[in-house]
Design a protein around this nucleic acid. Structure first.
Lengths: 197, 197
DNA sequence: GTCTATATCAGGATAGAC
DNA sequence: GTCTATCCTGATATAGAC
């Protein structure tokens, strides 16, 4: 198993994945044809199908890649130095998304598609589960420093708050993608006002 | 302009719209063909195109219809009797959605599609704007009864909180549509814990 | 207004050469 | 592994009869 060949293969897959992401972001998953990805990547149809079985698998790879890094960021932040507060965790979450993606359209499309495609649903399910775990961890760490806000213990407090932090993160993505006049600062200010401090 | 004929026409449009909603909910907008709507409605392609110019217009009509009733519910509730609290407003919002739609998949698909289709984007934009107005109104009414929580006046407090209530509503829909193990009660409990009381 | 039947076309996927 | 060329399915929208 020659090492260089393997690396090359991975590089090709990355190249295709990146081109697909750009294409999907521009026109939406359903509307971008393989021909679009061909153009964007500078490769050919044959090359693409040599690396991904079909369009759906390509989207799954894109999704996996985009979503995967959230955990790492949050996990890292919550284990080094002072545990971030729920609000800071939210900022971390949304900031990371904003950095990786010009806008959140691809994510919204992913969610939509996973509503109807079992394979994608599984991907989303898994990644969301993972984010949930990391997020819960981070919240627990913070509540541990604030026992006054966690009468039933940091664990219970974290579990209770979890859906809200997740939800506010998702909604941020959505509103940014959907609303012409979305104001990120106003949104985060509102979140800061309600989240425990 | 004969009155009965006009009513019939409207009834037909409703029939088609309802069939389309069922079809879209089952397979997703993009994947349902006109043939599916034909089957579901018991009519023919010709009949459908006699009432809607194309598939997109049909989806817009469905969307408009599904989204339109939220305002009325909330507006009604916030003007009769005791103004509902932010939490109660959220319950109203999510409860109404849950009642009208078996699941929120069509809404998620609508959001996704509006990411890329200008006509749908306009529909969403308009309806969200309207919901925002009504929601803001309702929040203002409540803050007016709780001046202790609105140091800068009910208006400012309502404006600040608005994005969070909207966001939590949207995220509820999303998570319900996406997550196998979504727990509505836990979600609302979390929301209740953070929203002002 | 509605039906049947179909023209037309886009796009996913593949075959075979290199 | 990649390219070119192409097959073929499936779906939108329409034409024309009733």
């Amino acid at each position: 198993m020659p090492r260089i060949t393997e690396a090359r293969r991975e590089a090709r897959r990355d190249q295709i994945r990146a081109a697909a992401l750009r294409s999907f972001a521009a026109k939406g998953y359903q509307r971008t044809s393989i021909a679009d990805v061909v153009t964007e990547s500078g490769l050919s149809a044959g090359a693409i199908y040599g690396h991904y079985a079909d369009k759906g698998e390509l989207f799954a790879a894109v999704a996996q890649h985009v979503l995967s890094r959230r955990d790492d960021e949050i996990a890292a932040a919550s284990h080094e130095g002072v545990p971030p507060s729920p609000y800071e965790i939210l900022v971390l979450l949304t900031g990371g998304m904003a950095r990786d993606l010009a806008d959140g359209r691809v994510l919204v499309q992913l969610w939509s598609e996973s509503t109807v495609d079992p394979a994608l649903r599984a991907v989303v399910q898994r990644v969301v589960g993972s984010v949930r775990g990391v997020l819960g961890d981070a919240l627990r760490n913070w509540f541990a420093t604030r026992p006054d806000l966690a009468p039933d213990g940091p664990d219970a407090a974290a579990q209770l708050l979890l859906p809200v932090v997740m939800g506010l993160g998702q909604a941020f993505i959505m509103q940014r993608a959907l609303l012409e006049d979305f104001d990120p600062d106003a949104y985060l200010a509102a979140a800061e006002a309600v989240l425990p401090r």
